[in-house]
Design a protein around this nucleic acid. Sequence first.
DNA 1: TTTATGAGTGAGTGATTACTTACTTCGTAG
DNA 2: CTACGAAGTAAGTAATCACTCACTCATAAA
Lengths: 205, 205
Amino acid sequence: MSEDDEKMTEKQIRIIDAAVESFAQKGYSATSTSEIAKRAGVAEGTIFRHYKTKKELFLSIVTPVIAKFVAPFVLRDFYQLFEEQYESFPDFLRAVLRNRLTFVMKNGPVIKILLHEIPFHEELRQQFKEQVFPQVAGPIERIIVHFQERGELIDLAPSTLIRLSISVMAGYIITRCYILPDNAWDDEKEVELAVQFIMHGLSPT
Amino acid sequence: MSEDDEKMTEKQIRIIDAAVESFAQKGYSATSTSEIAKRAGVAEGTIFRHYKTKKELFLSIVTPVIAKFVAPFVLRDFYQLFEEQYESFPDFLRAVLRNRLTFVMKNGPVIKILLHEIPFHEELRQQFKEQVFPQVAGPIERIIVHFQERGELIDLAPSTLIRLSISVMAGYIITRCYILPDNAWDDEKEVELAVQFIMHGLSPT
DNA sequence: TTTATGAGTGAGTGATTACTTACTTCGTAG
DNA sequence: CTACGAAGTAAGTAATCACTCACTCATAAA
């Protein structure tokens, strides 16, 4: 559940777990440090021994998953990887959707926190603007142009194709993980369905 | 900007406007009543003359737009209306997307507040479960079945078709209004593009 | 054994919170 | 002209907030 230990005391881990739970349940500013301490079974002062402020604790939880999210895209050979490995655009979509779905399912509560708090914390928005947008959009755009040249995609602005594809994929991930997590989802089937929809729409053949 | 007056004093309107601004900027629980009062140019006590609690003020802002959102769907003849007026499913999609886009643009900040706070307020989630889901999903499902019987839509569960359609439409509305509001959007073009994508996907011809 | 260090503690700190209360002001019905 | 209720207010209230500080304890190098 908790973070990648590495020289963390047991109580420190308990603090982070408690903070994640509380932040996810009630939001950052509705969560008090005394509540986190109580939940972690720790004195309130212990929190401030490890983190100077409440916000530092918050950022120590949330910023690592931004980095993790960007990581697979900034591999130097990301473009070549997909160009060689995946023969068609649907293959590429399937791989990305499966990959991000498992990522969200692994880091569920923290991503929920991140999504909620992004609009209210300048530091987070900054990090998104600097890291996520350029690092992720660039490589993907090249891949899209690649498949456009091969005639597998309609001739629209790559940013538009990205937006449409992400809408469908995010739509599934969000309903799957946050809106109706209790449904009996058949992920393989739903991924295939989403990919087919992105490629062919809702019209019968 | 503010609510539908109706026996509201000028100061009361200023309170609501100030509350909407603050809630949208910092979130519900990070906004203090003293801050709202200051922003409205009003004594803090004045807020509590009109609203028993901070939460009551919040709900008085947010619940009307839930009702407004549902309103067009609960018209008794909603189903007949679309059955007669719109000859094809794409026509239906166009109408809905245009309609909801203007709705979001009119009530922008309040909808932003609503989306952020839904997970943290049981009353809001309740209202969504009771009003939005059944009232909206029902009529739309009948319309989808109608077009499926006419052979205009592939044979999938209506709930799936709804989810996919909403993903694309919400994807555009959210990027249009909240993520990149400063872009020079050509709404007519983008609406048409979204509808075409829903019907035919990204594959060429 | 002594000493030094860092984890952990709990009783504080002043500031801020949502909300109350006693009061004034003002428009209007009688 | 008066009386009354609603609108508005300034000065409170207790509770809670994030954070501090003086302290204990355990471990381990000297």
